[in-house]
């Protein structure tokens, strides 16, 4: 079974995003960038499926600038077999990314698309579900367990108030939630090996996909700041303060 794993290069998880003074966006100049954490979980799950003998090939794909090659090399070092960069300097909306991924699915014919539920920059939580809709494939979003067997994936999903298990016929789109696994660190030998794995670069324009923006960013601002209150000395002080504030 071939598994396609879309990955995104985003601001590093530990870096605090700062809004640009001109309100046009978030300042990403000289900021550490990494693979989106949910994408790492998706890569890890694909590698585990390969280690179990369920997946035969893992293709990582990214849609982004030339530097996204580094993100793809990370996926290759974790265990993906080859990588595709759809190169563009445009900042694409989730629907446009889903359309690009649909075109890649058409070329690669994977039986499973395994991807993160959400990127920590745009926080849209939409691309996987949109891809499933465009392909008319079943989806299992927010997966915390994936078992592939007999042409189906049995997926346990994080839902409001608990867990739900569904069966989806393959091919399908599965999006990874936090508890699916703990991604491995790539070892130095694997990082070296990853440099020799194939990485194919395509220009976005060569796919013939309409990626025009549907939203105009009017401005990006800082959220209102909450100021620190007071320190209390004892639990009893705390309770009396809360009573005064009318919340107890």
């Amino acid at each position: 079974m071939k598994v396609l794993v879309p990955v995104k290069r985003v601001i590093d998880y530990n870096v605090k995003a700062r809004v640009k003074a001109d309100q046009t966006g978030v300042d990403l100049a000289n900021v550490k960038m990494s693979m989106n954490p949910f994408c790492e979980i998706a890569v890890e799950e694909a590698v585990r499926l390969k280690e179990k003998g369920v997946a035969s090939e893992i293709v990582a794909v990214s849609v982004g600038p030339t530097q996204a090659q580094e993100t793809l090399r990370t996926a290759l070092a974790m265990g993906a077999d080859r990588a595709i960069l759809v190169q563009t300097d445009q900042d694409l909306e989730p629907l446009a990314v889903a359309k690009v991924l649909k075109a890649i699915v058409g070329e690669e014919n994977p039986e499973l698309v395994l991807m993160g539920k959400q990127a920590i920059d745009g926080d849209n939580n939409a691309t996987g579900q949109m891809l499933a809709a465009l392909l008319d494939w079943p989806q299992a979003a927010f997966a915390s367990e994936v078992v592939v067997e007999g042409g189906k994936a049995k997926v346990t999903r994080e839902v409001d108030g608990g867990l739900q298990t569904i069966d989806v016929n393959l091919p399908a789109v599965v999006t990874a939630d936090l508890r699916l696994n703990e991604p491995r660190y790539a070892s130095l030998p694997n990082i070296m090996k990853a440099k020799k794995k194939p990485l194919d670069v395509k220009e976005l324009g060569s796919l013939g996909v309409d990626t025009a923006a549907k939203l105009k960013v009017v401005k990006v601002t800082e959220p209102p700041k909450r100021s620190a209150g007071i320190k209390v000395e004892t639990a009893a002080d705390l309770v009396s303060n809360l009573k005064t504030a009318g919340v107890l």
């Binding site: 995003a17 809004v19 978030v26 920590i120 920059d121 745009g122 926080d123 990006v220 800082e222 959220p223």
Partner: peptide
Amino acid sequence: IYAGNALE
């Protein structure tokens, strides 16, 4: 966006 560090 960005975990609530910015409003778009």
